[in-house]
């Protein structure tokens, strides 16, 4: 029983972190119709950003996230202007090559600039653990989880409660009709892309105190996040959050029961099973439609 609860806690904490990464990826797909293979590289930039700010100035890593996230946002704007906007309306392979190319470029730029060394961020509270009801809850993990969930909830509120958010949904559902409302579709693309990659950067910053930082760290996340996004229903924000929590749970449970090597395999099996039963993902009906339109 205690073990089950512990797995539940660990899984949810991990899943909450995946959620912030997955929400951005699903939004970029739903609104721009772009599969952003470079998404986890923006996370990597957030990790390195926080690492360097912490390393060079000694600033607390969580405060460093506040500095780094706007920088990733700015970088997202540049990438949108230089790359993403130019692929809109181009054949799908062009878009795939563009974001895949960006991913490879960013990995190699990081390798060149910062070498392949594995780095980590440590704080006075790195090893601090809370023990409610005999469970072990890592303090930095809990902080990161909380901030990630709040950020995801904030994005959701903007999308569903503000006119600008509804305009984003309108673009996802029908971009021509949105233009006929007087909505500047390219501008919506710009903000959706850069805020989504900034969320990835923030997520990277939040996990910098938890996991090791290295140029190719994105590779170990991108597949997981794609599984989450498809499982949640392409384009669905609530679906992505739900699926992220589930994948976190599966990963934690499989890790405990069969060892770390089984974690990934186990959620791929579940992924296949769910897709056989519900090819559109959990929120399939709402999913592809809420944010991806026709």
């Amino acid at each position: 029983m205690q073990l089950a609860l512990q797995i539940l806690v660990n899984g949810l904490l991990l899943g909450g972190l995946y959620a912030l990464l997955a929400v951005g990826l699903t939004l970029i797909f739903g609104v721009l119709r772009v599969v952003n293979f470079a998404h986890a590289e923006f996370m990597m930039l957030g990790m390195f950003g926080v690492y360097w700010v912490w390393h060079l100035t000694g600033l607390d890593p969580y405060l460093a996230v506040l500095v780094v996230t706007p920088l990733v946002l700015l970088f997202g704007i540049v990438c949108d202007r230089l790359i993403i906007q130019r692929t809109i309306g181009a054949p799908e392979v062009t878009v795939v090559f563009a974001t895949l190319g960006l991913s490879i470029f960013l990995q190699n730029a990081a390798l060149t600039l910062w070498t392949a060394d594995i780095r980590s961020v440590t704080t006075a509270y790195s090893g601090m653990v809370l023990t409610p009801f005999g469970l072990r809850v890592s303090v930095p993990m809990l902080i990161s989880f909380t901030v990630a969930m709040l950020a995801a909830a904030g994005l959701w509120l903007v999308l569903t409660r503000t006119l600008y958010g509804k305009a984003i949904q309108a673009v996802a559902q029908n971009r021509e009709a949105a233009a006929l409302m007087g909505i500047d579709v390219r501008r919506i693309y710009l903000w959706t892309f850069s805020v989504a990659v900034a969320a990835a950067g923030a997520m990277g910053g939040l996990i910098a105190p938890l996991f090791t930082v290295y140029p190719r760290v994105g590779i170990s996340y991108i597949v997981t996040v794609f599984v989450i996004v498809v499982l949640g229903g392409l384009g669905s924000v609530p679906g992505a959050v739900l699926a992220a929590l589930l994948i976190g749970l599966i990963e934690a449970a499989a890790g405990f029961l069969f060892g770390a090597a089984w974690a990934e395999l186990s959620y791929f099996l579940i992924f296949l099973a769910v897709l056989i039963a519900r090819p559109q993902g959990f929120f399939g009906r709402r999913g592809a439609e809420v944010f991806a339109g026709r």
């Binding site: 509804k166 949904q169 309108a170 559902q173 029908n174 021509e176 009709a177 949105a178 233009a179 006929l180 409302m181 007087g182 909505i183 500047d184 579709v185 709402r286 439609e289 809420v290 339109g293 026709r294």
Partner: peptide, 24 residues
């Protein structure tokens, strides 16, 4: 002038097939 700006100038189109936003 881009489409969205034409709307701001007072040019409206109710398109063929209606194109309402189905999930709003």
């Amino acid at each position: 002038v881009p489409s969205h700006e034409r709307v701001a100038r007072g040019l409206g189109l109710v398109p063929e097939g209606r194109l309402v936003f189905p999930f709003l």
